[in-house]
């Protein structure tokens, strides 16, 4: 989809979201430029995952507007599918399809959504498995893989749809410590290739090495944002300082 050079990849305007009477998002405004790697941090319940899930309409905002790559996300099924085709998502709990092999996991949506042939989709799947470093696991089922391997397959599965944006919802928080690096390495490589990424995570290493901007959220609002060295080195708000003092030991 062609667009004017000044148009952001993701535009979030005045977005609010309620769960019953709980206000998960409170008039959030955010712009993400093409090629930007944005990191969202904040305490649990601050709305960071909800914001991420609004971008591909897994949650429906109660107010405000979200525009992804020039497409306004609305309740229109065709618009939602158009947006989802542009946006890949990686979940905390991987959510691989346990009844399919690794290869089939990566091929399913390619065949059913992108209408690629079996041969073409498998060729793409093999390339991506090489890229995430586990081609030897192609014919296993997800249950036979370690958490780190599963998450790498999940990333490959999303990339197979050739998205313009990748969303990561706490991609390393369900992993054993020794497996975090292998997943972060794949994410770093993606960032280096210029992928637009929105990452909900507290991985400071990733923030320092790859993030262009860090957003701190609390109680459904964006409290402050800036380059990682500014947010981590010299936070302006009391809540940011308090939060960082808790996660940086």
């Amino acid at each position: 989809m062609s667009q004017p050079a000044n148009q952001p990849m993701i535009l979030i305007e005045n977005v609010s979201k309620y769960f019953g009477s709980f206000r998960a998002l409170d008039r959030v405004n955010l712009r993400v430029e093409a090629g930007e790697v944005l990191m969202i941090i904040g305490p649990s319940g601050s709305g960071k995952s909800t914001l991420l899930r609004c971008i591909n309409h897994l949650e429906v905002p109660d107010a405000g507007r979200i525009v992804v790559d020039g497409i306004t996300v609305s309740n229109n099924e065709a618009h939602i599918n158009a947006v989802r085709a542009e946006v890949g998502m990686v979940f905390q709990r991987f959510e691989l399809f346990p009844h399919l092999t690794v290869l089939e996991n990566i091929c399913l949506a390619q065949q059913k959504v992108r209408r690629r042939s079996r041969q073409e989709s498998e060729q793409i799947a093999w390339q991506l498995l090489e890229k995430v470093g586990i081609p030897e696991q192609a014919h296993k089922h997800p249950g036979q893989l370690s958490g780190g391997q599963q998450q790498r397959v999940a990333i490959a599965r999303s990339l197979a749809m050739q998205p313009k944006i990748m969303l990561f919802d706490e991609p390393t928080s369900a992993l054993d410590p020794e497996m975090i690096k292998e997943v972060l390495d794949v994410m770093l490589a993606l960032a280096a290739e210029g992928m637009t990424m929105v990452v909900v995570s507290h991985e400071m290493g990733f923030a320092r090495n790859a993030a262009n901007r860090v957003v701190f959220m609390d109680q459904g609002r964006i409290i402050e944002q800036g380059p990682p060295e500014a947010i981590f080195g010299d936070p302006q708000h009391e809540r940011t300082k308090l939060f960082l003092s808790r996660i940086l030991h």
Binding site: N56, L58, N81, E95, L96, F97, A109, V113, R157
Partner: peptide
């Protein structure tokens, strides 16, 4: 629910 969400986020109906 995550299985349905994962499939939907890949663009499946």
């Amino acid at each position: 629910r995550g299985q349905m969400e994962a499939a939907r986020s890949l663009g499946m109906s």
